[in-house]
């Protein structure tokens, strides 16, 4: 489906993905996640810091998967590099 998207739509989707990744990284290293002595709320029995960082890692890897596909499709349309 993504293969049929216009170049403009691919570019804006790629921008949304990388800004989401940057925002996620910023939040992960902010005081929202890095709080000393905060262990609650627990989730799946894990303390707050661990489950939030695991969840953020999963989201970032998922963004890499989706972002990779969008970026590849975009570059296939805009770049003549044979190395693609």
């Amino acid at each position: 489906m993504i293969k049929n998207w216009s170049e403009r739509k691919l570019k804006s989707t790629w921008r949304i993905i990388y800004w989401s990744a940057i925002l996620l990284i910023a939040v992960t290293f902010s005081p929202i996640v890095l709080i000393q002595d905060k262990v609650d709320p627990h989730w799946l029995q894990m303390p707050f810091h661990l489950w939030v960082s695991i969840l953020n890692t999963i989201v970032l890897v998922a963004l890499t998967g989706v972002g990779g596909y969008v970026f590849y499709t975009l570059k296939s349309k805009t770049d003549n590099d044979q190395n693609l």
């Binding site: 992960t28 996640v33 890095l34 810091h49 661990l50 960082s53 695991i54 953020n56 890499t64």
Partner: peptide, 21 residues
């Protein structure tokens, strides 16, 4: 402690995102 996850696993996730580009 558990901050080791952020130290390595999350940083590795940042690394793989960076590899795309």
């Amino acid at each position: 402690g558990v901050g080791a996850w952020l130290f390595l696993a999350f940083s590795d996730a940042v690394m793989v995102f960076f590899i795309l580009w």
